[in-house]
């Protein structure tokens, strides 16, 4: 386990290193003079010269990259061109907002997806199976930004159950401690606010959960059907074990690996999808931060935002890899 973890960490280094190169090149790949593009056509020569200097674009690229890497390693993500604030401080509340949204979405996706997949496999070829799988197919094909709009139309505008946008009641803002509002409201002892925050979370997290939910359901069903054909399941049934335990204890344990893989991969999609969901629901997350930065051509923020999301994605898949070994001791890493 330890050797494997170390080896896996070492294999991460070239990928993370490559990611910094990709992100670093974003600003250099802009056709023309980046400073000119950022400031627009009417910028004065002095302003362009100042920005060029500020971004360090007047130096050779390898020195720039070295500086970039050096400051990254010191936890410095650069300065936003728009707010002129340090990005590593600015980004934290946005990151927490996205994390809250993503965790909620993943919980919904896993709980509903896995159970729907299990029941579909258990009663395969039943009407439940049929409906669940058709819904899953539609779910995979759903553009989430449209689903979000339709949710707003149905559940906020027509039924009035949930708020349309935002993360909190603007007239009664949450006093942030950890920036995870569900936790903060509880820490503050504001249970009424907790409900309000929870209500804000429902629609965006459901929209974001749709695609992973559908994929997890399909994957769970396929593996469960495979597992339930195996001999040890027949033995369990033969010794008179209730079907419920056979499914949820014996089979699920063996279906967990592929499902875990999907969950790991889907988190990346979730982080990408967060940009769309956050734009629609006015959720002040990292996707929204990035989206605004693109509008303002705030390249340091674009670079750091992309790097951070990608790094989180890599980290999550790393954790999933470690979980494999814990979940399934048969897995050995000889390579």
């Amino acid at each position: 386990m330890l050797t494997y973890s170390v080896r896996r960490v070492l294999s991460l280094i070239p990928v993370l290193f490559g990611m910094t190169i990709v992100v670093f090149s974003i600003i250099h790949a802009i056709p023309g003079n980046p400073a000119q593009i950022i400031l627009g056509q009417r910028a004065t020569k002095e302003a362009i010269a100042t920005l060029t200097k500020q971004l360090g674009l007047d130096k050779p690229w390898y020195i720039q990259y070295f500086h970039y890497l050096n400051s990254l390693l010191h936890g410095d993500l650069g300065t936003s061109l728009r707010t002129r604030g340090p990005i590593n401080q600015e980004i934290w509340p946005y990151l927490a907002a996205t994390a809250e949204l993503a965790v909620a979405a993943m919980l919904i996706a896993v709980i509903i997806g896995v159970n729907a997949g299990i029941i579909s496999a258990w009663f395969s070829k039943s009407w439940f199976d049929y409906i669940a799988m058709v819904l899953a197919l539609i779910g995979v094909s759903m553009p989430i930004f449209w689903l979000g709009l339709m949710e707003q139309w149905g559940f906020s505008i027509h039924l009035g159950w949930f708020p349309t946008t935002g993360r909190e009641d603007v007239r009664d803002p949450v006093s942030a401690i950890t920036n995870f509002y569900l936790i903060d409201t509880l820490l503050n002892g504001r249970y009424d606010q907790f409900i309000v925050v929870l209500k804000h979370l429902v629609l965006p997290s459901c929209a974001l959960a749709t695609i992973p939910m559908a994929i997890i359901a399909r994957m769970t069903r396929a593996t469960m059907i495979e597992v339930m054909k195996s001999d040890f399941i027949r033995t369990a049934r033969a010794k008179g074990l209730r079907m419920f335990w056979v499914v949820y204890k014996h089979s699920l344990k063996n279906a967990v690996i592929p499902v875990l893989t999907v969950i790991g991969l889907q988190t990346g999609l979730l982080l990408g999808g967060a940009i769309l969901t956050e734009t629609i629901f006015g959720w002040p997350g990292i996707g929204r931060y990035l989206y605004d930065a693109i509008g303002y051509r705030d390249y340091p923020v674009i670079q750091s935002g992309i790097l951070l999301i990608a790094a989180i994605f890599v980290l999550i898949n790393f954790i999933v890899d470690l979980l494999y070994v814990i979940v399934d001791p048969r897995i050995k890493y000889s390579k």
Binding site: G18, V23, I26, I30, I302, A310
Partner: peptide, 23 residues
């Protein structure tokens, strides 16, 4: 293969946005 690894390390929507942000 390493280049592929690095590209796959980015969520696809994000990478697409990055490319459009450049172009």
């Amino acid at each position: 293969s390493r280049i592929f690894d690095i590209m796959l390390a980015f969520p696809s929507t994000l990478l697409a946005i990055a490319v459009v942000a450049i172009l």
